[in-house]
Write a protein that binds this DNA or RNA. Structure first.
Lengths: 241, 241
DNA sequence: GCTGGGGATTTACCTATGTTAGTGGATGGC
DNA sequence: GCCATCCACTAACATAGGTAAATCCCCAGC
């Protein structure tokens, strides 16, 4: 399946896939669906019967506090499952919303079950993808807890570039990022005003620029240093798993 | 195995286990090891050949920034695997340190492999435990990003009580928590001074008390309200997975 | 060409939390 | 009994980041 291409690329950066495994993946019964900006891809507290795989656009896990504040606890790009964990977790503890126009594939849990029963190795790779998800969350926790606004945003831009590169979404040191500053604020746990201030500072330093459409990394080395970014946690090495 | 009791309780709160599955788990080749306060249970960047399961004490995932600041991104109590994800991830993106005296079981990855090959259902339950781990991390992200010191600490105490209750570590509304305030500060991403201030505030409100040994929840309902705590994310329902 | 709306940006002010530098109490080694 | 530690706690001050309310800018619709 053409639509599975990005997902297969994320897998192949972590392990080798046999022709049989590729065929097995391609045999899955899928439904494609589009979402508009702001639309919910998965509702919180529901018990989904399928997991959704991003094909295009950016979505995020959304959690809303009692006071109505929003925190986005993950961003998803093409090739990412937004809720593969719902396969074992059964019940969503968060929502997933489209932050841009999004195209997603719906993979029934029955299909996932069929695939992992037929190939325990693919089963472990599915498991792997949820644990990489966890590793990313740990990195975000460290950023939220122990770094300044600038360091945090620098780290985030490094991470996004690296993840987008895997699925061929970057061109040079730029990648598409069509969110509003207020949305980015909900990602990094800051106010929109402070995100604005910090972006100007980063721009002023000549490190990154972002016009609301594209993030352009001007000085990658300095961005990495600023964000204390070490991509180890993304597990981008082909190993038998 | 007696030592596996807490782990089996965490599993049984999420799904039913057959006698065969219990026997399979008990058949695992294990090594028990003790750790002193402050000792590393797993080193960062290593490629462990086994995963460690907590039997006693409290440990935490530790990440250190370039400036030497420390963030603890997870706490583990009896029954929790500290690094089950290393089974598929292969390389640690963080360390795990003993925050109290700790007893842990070392489970070779070969044994985990043997168990999940023999029982795909147990395999899914192992997978489940890593995704619950992820759900907890999401809750922490929301706390770090969008709540005040008091709300965050209230949430943490609710979570810890709930998790300890599963494995029989609570007595009434109290549970053992022998960390220093500075260590707690690294958990909630605050300074030790502010943790101290906030604890006094919580004490003053008559909601929780903590003398460095035991956390005593005085008014559980208010603590839950303060922390906006909803235990759904801990997935404490027995369901076929 | 006018209008309305959604963002980006700015300004002024506010506050939660951090930092530094203590004090004092408990504990353990010798 | 003295000393060194470690840790809770305090106090005074500093600051990163939040809040509220404008203003500006762009663009779509008419």
């Amino acid at each position: 399946m053409n639509r599975l291409r990005p997902f297969i690329r994320t897998l192949e950066r972590r392990d080798r896939l046999s022709p049989d495994e590729l065929a097995l993946l391609s045999s899955a019964q899928l439904r494609v669906q589009g979402f508009r900006r702001g639309q919910e891809i998965v509702r919180a507290k529901t018990q989904p019967g399928e997991s959704r795989l991003m094909v295009q656009g950016i979505s995020g896990r959304e959690m809303v506090t009692a006071e109505g504040k929003r925190q986005i606890s993950a961003l998803h790009v093409a090739g990412d499952f937004v809720d593969l964990h719902s396969f074992v977790l059964k019940r969503m503890d968060h929502a997933v919303v489209a932050l841009t126009e999004v195209t997603a594939i719906f993979v029934p849990h029955a299909e996932i079950r069929r695939i992992i029963d037929a190939s325990p190795h693919l089963g472990r790779l599915f498991w792997l993808m949820t644990t990489i998800d966890g590793a990313i969350q740990r990195a975000w926790i460290a950023c939220l807890g122990r770094s300044t606004a600038m360091q945090h945003m620098a780290h985030l831009f490094c991470e996004l570039w690296t993840r987008m590169e895997i699925v061929g979404l970057v061109s040079g040191h730029s990648f598409p990022f069509r969110l509003t500053q207020a949305e980015l604020a909900d990602v990094v746990g800051l106010s929109a005003v402070h995100v604005n201030r910090t972006l100007q500072e980063l721009r002023g330093l000549g490190v990154v620029d972002w016009n609301g459409e594209q993030v352009e990394i001007i000085d990658f080395d300095r961005l990495v240093a600023l964000g204390d970014f070490d991509k180890t946690y993304l597990n981008l090495t082909q190993e038998p798993r």
